[in-house]
Design a protein around this nucleic acid. Structure first.
Lengths: 246, 246
DNA sequence: AGGCGCTTGTGAAGGCGTGCACAAATCGCG
DNA sequence: CGCGATTTGTGCACGCCTTCACAAGCGCCT
């Protein structure tokens, strides 16, 4: 979708290797590799083979090698990958070395959980501001932060250096919040509201809809049920043997 | 990843149209279409053009037509799609006509939110049982349900006719819970724990990792920042103009 | 020093998904 | 009754992603 080339002339050997334009599919897997690598580092492993890391991340080993080769990886043939080095590489590529400030809008049911989710902090993300439109919610303390009114969003984004916005509002309010975030200069949005957001070019939106995942599972349940019921479907060997990619 | 064929012989014209084996990418979009259709139905629309529905769902109209054609859709040329009929079709395909019983394991931070998330009930999913391993949590009432100890999981799954399990435990406990679910006969799992689950063939696992989504956004932030900083990257026109596919 | 086993990195092939562009079909109106 | 406007359904080509298979490289052991 973005085939513009980089300024990296062939033979470029600068200290910072320009910016590699990785396939989107590869990017989506890097966080999983990173998690597996952290686990390995905790167990004391200094190197991993592509086979071992692939197993820990739940992917094909060839795919993992190709992914890592895209970011000019430093593996050693006959040995494997240096765990610590690879962690640094991937964290640099993902921009996790600079801790990112996140704003969370909507502290309802889901927002509460997100505000307290420790999986964010442990990956280098820090929620620095909470907002809500409901006066009932405004003012309450939550995880060390005070919920502010959504009108203050614009100012806070600039003052706190926020680069990522998380929308956990009802669907009806999501577009207005997105507009506010974009107006304030946020260029990355994680949307939990079940609706499509319209944003200008240059702004990235990722959507997570919990109900959609269940519906996809429901489809497979339905399919499996109809197969076992049919005379033709004799062996229940359908389905994927491993986690389905997101 | 699963190229085994279905038992649907070509020329099959049974009353129930065997089971269409839809592309995985299509299945993942059907819930989004369904949501858009429900919105349209509420506004009183009786028919939609592929163009209109595609806009509401945030996809290309050609893609939408191809998706719908896969499930042998009933559109009328020159007119569009019958909203009510299409809703029924998609809900049947997704197996949403039969309300599915869901078990939720782990009522910590995230589990609490999931238990109270009304987006599930409105799509035909009903959480009928809550479990946790922490004695502190067991016994508490949550959304009209009492949290039970995870040891009772196996019995409850059978008694309550549970077909889908949701894992919202810490990573360390997830595999054991998955094993219990599978042993009890559950064949669909939605995993929120940040780890890879090993399950036998025939069991579908979908994974949602909130932190991974943020890391992908972080990558794009990093990329955008390095582009604007580079002398070559003059126009900030990079990025996708619409929501990024999950 | 030489050979052997192991592992990475990659060329090539195949499959899947996307999007264009157009033929086929339906409705409404004169 | 026929014609034009409109919209679906789909053949086709293109590009991305995955996977296999193997050459290239590295370390260790003799």
């Amino acid at each position: 979708m973005s085939q513009q080339r980089q300024g990296s002339t062939p033979g470029n050997t600068g200290a910072v290797p320009a910016f590699p334009d990785l396939p989107e599919a590869t990017i989506a897997r890097l966080p999983e590799y990173l998690r597996a690598l952290h686990n390995l580092a905790e167990t004391g492993s200094e190197t991993v083979s592509s086979e071992g890391l692939a197993a820990a991340a739940g992917v094909n080993s060839a795919k993992l090698r190709k992914d890592l080769s895209h970011l000019g990886s430093y593996g050693t043939r006959g040995v494997g990958y240096d765990v610590a080095l690879l962690i640094d590489q991937i964290e640099y590529i993902l921009g996790l070395d600079q801790r990112r400030a996140v704003a969370l809008v909507g502290v309802g049911n889901l927002g509460h959980a997100l505000a307290g989710y420790d999986g964010f902090a442990s990956r280098g993300f820090r929620i620095v501001a909470l907002f809500d439109a409901d006066p009932e919610q405004v003012g309450q303390a939550l995880n060390g932060l005070t919920v502010r009114h959504v009108e203050e969003l614009g100012r806070a984004v600039v003052e706190e250096g926020i680069t990522i916005g998380v929308i956990a509002t009802p669907a009806g309010a999501a577009q207005a919040v997105a507009d506010d975030l974009v107006a304030a200069g946020v260029t990355s949005i994680l949307n939990f509201a079940p609706c499509v957001l319209a944003v200008p070019a240059g702004v990235d939106v990722r959507k997570v809809d919990l109900a959609i995942e269940l519906q996809i599972l429901s489809f497979h349940e339905h399919r499996k049920a109809s197969l076992t019921a049919l005379p033709g479907g004799r062996s229940p060997q359908a389905g994927n043997q491993e986690a389905v990619g997101s």
